[in-house]
Design a protein around this nucleic acid. Structure first.
Lengths: 164, 164
DNA sequence: CATGGATAGTTCAGCGGTCAAATACTGGGG
DNA sequence: CCCCAGTATTTGACCGCTGAACTATCCATG
């Protein structure tokens, strides 16, 4: 809105964006590779399982899981189906409302969660947490939170209302 | 290597990682959405076209383009095929070495590059560059470069040699 | 000049993700 | 009691990407 919207980026801005984007992309890629190699699980699936592991009864409604992980329902369906095929999760129908469906962690799934957790910890430490000083990490966290805050206000305020 | 490899992450570390990861993911997603909406082109394809636009003769060898964009050859093949279908790019065979193939920007492609550039500029300013002070941006850039540097040393040094 | 290794690019199968449409079920108002 | 709007999940088609074969071509060597 500040009218400078389409002035081309200067050198400084370009480099800042490139550095940020490149670092984040490569960091994610590296961690994903590590997770896949050491735990046989992509980071995103591990996050699903982590939520289940922390839920009471190690089970959650599909929609609750979708909420918790900020993902579209259809993604959940696909992901849970695949995790079910791998034996890490089991679907259970709700008796009182037959529309709803629970995803429950299996024993094998619980083991996978902890294994993946170790892999993630290790990867995170060696590629991220261990590479910056505590002060730098704190700064980075502050900056990330600022970005997030702006994204949130930008998404919630101006559009009137979100088409949930 | 520092023996603290598998100690679970503490609260602080977890939050830092989550903030960073979440901010970056959402930022990328937002910018991709904007690009798709305003220029009908995903960010990644725009980057390919940008390289072509800046190359002498608006054309590059496939392998050079792959190098420049840090992407696997097969990705290039697919992407260029699709861009060719959309009429933004044209393949040209090299006469001296029939193995090699050039990707050349078409007129339509050149227009798309500038349009996408405007869209990217606008999105970047409103979601990233415009949301942080110049000082913060400089800090963020420094931190990103530090992360990148560590990723590079980690990838090049210890494995002996990369199986190119 | 034939041959075998290196190089450039493509093909194929599969993964994780999105969106739009379909399905299955519930609960409240005529 | 029936019907219909709303809700929960699934389905299916497609997208961009990856890694592992495969094809075609080149070139150094014997």
């Amino acid at each position: 809105m500040t009218a400078m919207t389409t002035a081309p980026l200067d050198e400084e801005e370009t480099r800042t964006w490139k550095a940020y984007a490149c670092a984040a992309r490569r960091l994610f890629a590296q961690i994903d590779r590590d997770m896949q190699r050491d735990a046989g699980l992509p980071t995103s699936y591990w996050e699903l399982l982590r939520h289940l592991a922390e839920a009471p009864g190690r089970a959650m409604r599909m929609s609750a899981l979708a909420d918790a992980t900020q993902s579209a329902p259809s993604r959940l369906t696909h992901a849970v189906s695949q995790l079910e095929c791998s034996g890490l999760v089991q679907r259970r129908q709700c008796t009182s409302d037959r529309r709803v469906c629970y995803a429950a962690l299996t024993e094998k799934g619980a083991e996978a969660v902890t294994a993946a957790g170790d892999a993630a910890t290790q990867s995170l430490r060696s590629h991220f947490l261990g590479t910056l000083s505590p002060a730098d990490l704190a700064r980075l966290r502050g900056l990330s939170e600022a970005i997030l805050a702006h994204l949130n206000t930008a998404c919630e305020a101006p559009a009137g209302r979100r088409p949930r």
